[in-house]
């Protein structure tokens, strides 16, 4: 990586074009952050829904009948490790190490797929024992909040695959670095939301 590309100290995503003047910055990082904050508000309303409806069991099962803290702990570990491995991938990408980057990205993707698989298994199990989203207000809110998070992780995995193909085609060009950075922020953000889920949806209700 040439030093001319590294002189853009303030540029938040990718090294800027060398031929541009010094203050050129891509609007993508800030725009993507604003998108994430709006996404954060969606999750906030779903958390509020769960807070309001979370005690309406309609005579059905309560969190203590359904949730297994050990299972949630493994899900949490998968997501946190995935976040860290994505951070490793970003550190390799800055060094223009394609092999290392792809390796860490694949690992992040596998951890996230494991997380989604566990969540789907949990959903299937709950529906199977008659604790589906139609059972009570509590379960409707639970499936909506946790399902929305799982959907985000799934979309993140699809994005990861397409980005790895793009990296293979064009390498660490400016556009790919910008995309990689946006996905990195998205990935860490989903882990951040999961902190709220495992604390507020699972652990607090098992006390």
């Amino acid at each position: 990586m040439s030093t001319t590309q590294m002189t853009q100290g303030g540029a938040a995503v990718a090294p800027a074009h060398g031929d541009d003047h010094a203050h050129h910055e891509s609007p993508t990082p800030l725009g993507f952050w604003i998108y994430l904050m709006s996404d954060c508000l969606i999750f906030g309303t779903l958390f509020a829904t769960y807070a309001v409806l979370g005690y309406n069991y309609a005579g059905g099962p309560s969190p203590k009948d359904l949730f297994e803290p050990g299972f949630v702990a493994i899900e949490t570990a998968l997501l946190l490790l995935s976040s860290v491995t994505f951070g490793m991938a970003m550190l390799r990408a800055v060094k223009s190490d394609m092999k290392g980057t792809i390796l860490w990205l694949v690992l992040s993707g596998l951890l996230a797929v494991g997380f989604v698989a566990m969540e789907l298994y949990e959903f299937r199990h709950l529906i199977h024992i008659g604790a589906g989203p139609t059972r009570s207000g509590f379960l409707s809110a639970f499936f909506l909040l946790v399902g929305t998070h799982g959907l985000h992780v799934t979309v993140g995995c699809i994005w990861l695959i397409t980005l790895m193909i793009q990296l293979g085609q064009r390498g660490f060009c400016e556009a790919n670095m910008r995309r990689l950075n946006a996905l990195s922020v998205f990935w860490h953000f989903l882990d951040l939301i999961w902190i709220g889920v495992f604390s507020f949806v699972y652990l607090v209700r098992l006390v």
Partner: peptide
């Protein structure tokens, strides 16, 4: 230069 760039965007190994 490179360190400065990393600090602002991707962090460092230590931060991670």
């Amino acid at each position: 230069m490179a360190e400065h760039h990393e600090n602002n965007t991707h962090g460092s190994m230590g931060q991670l």
